[in-house]
Simulated scan of single mutants.
Amino acid sequence: MSNKIILQAPFSDQTIRSLKAGDMVYISGTVYTARDAAHKRLYEMLECGEPMPFDFAGQAVYYAGPAPAKPGKPIGSVGPTTGGRMDAYSPTLIAEGLKVMIGKGTRSAEVIEAMKQHTGVYFAAIGGAAALMAKCVESAEVIAFEELGTEAIRKLQVKELPVVVAIDCRGNDIYQSGRDAYKM
């Protein structure tokens, strides 16, 4: 069995280039949650030249809307949502420095091209395991758009959040049918 790959967020281009589609990794450090409504707001803010609620450089966004926390817990269940729901906004955010996206499901050709151009990576989180994912969250803090409730942007501190490299920075995609044995 190979060594356990633990990555520290935020991410460098060198780290992202070392990943290959299909790699199982664990993320520790800061991860931000943002779903559809938050992505739309971020996109609109960028178009208006407004400052972002966090610096995108090297950061990871987890497409999740956490359930309310139970007493004594930092967060409730926090499972991934479908990445394609953010495809209209993702190329712009990637161009602004966003390096890592975590979700489930396929991504558009435009998102994959932006990842290749700007050295980004898309991780698949384990769908149906929201309670397990919540156990990896050490702290959670709403940092923007509190009025969106579960879709507010949260800053999470995670320890060994399990993910799979779904699409690497070369465009190799585990969702692609036929999987032409991941190009190098």
Results as ranks from 00 to 15, higher is better:
173 D>E: 07
69 A>R: 01
114 A>R: 05
55 D>T: 06
96 E>H: 08
119 T>P: 02
160 E>M: 01
137 V>M: 01
134 A>L: 04
158 V>Y: 09
122 Y>G: 01
154 R>Y: 14
70 K>E: 15
102 I>T: 08
74 P>T: 10
134 A>Q: 02
145 F>N: 07
150 T>A: 15
75 I>A: 12
99 K>F: 06
124 A>Y: 02
125 A>P: 04
145 F>C: 07
88 A>M: 12
139 S>K: 12
173 D>P: 08
137 V>F: 03
123 F>Y: 04
172 N>Y: 11
113 E>D: 15
122 Y>F: 13
154 R>W: 10
145 F>M: 11
108 S>V: 00
63 Y>Q: 10
61 V>L: 12
163 V>G: 04
161 L>A: 00
94 I>Y: 02
80 P>D: 13
111 V>F: 09
123 F>D: 06
178 G>N: 15
172 N>H: 12
107 R>C: 15
134 A>P: 02
64 A>Q: 09
161 L>Q: 01
168 D>C: 14
121 V>C: 12
116 K>Y: 03
123 F>V: 10
178 G>F: 10
152 A>C: 12
153 I>D: 00
145 F>P: 02
156 L>N: 03
84 G>L: 05
168 D>H: 12
56 F>M: 13
160 E>I: 04
147 E>N: 13
105 G>N: 05
147 E>M: 07
133 M>R: 07
63 Y>C: 13
147 E>P: 07
79 G>Q: 03
129 A>L: 14
106 T>W: 00
78 V>K: 14
127 G>K: 14
106 T>G: 05
163 V>W: 03
146 E>C: 07
113 E>L: 10
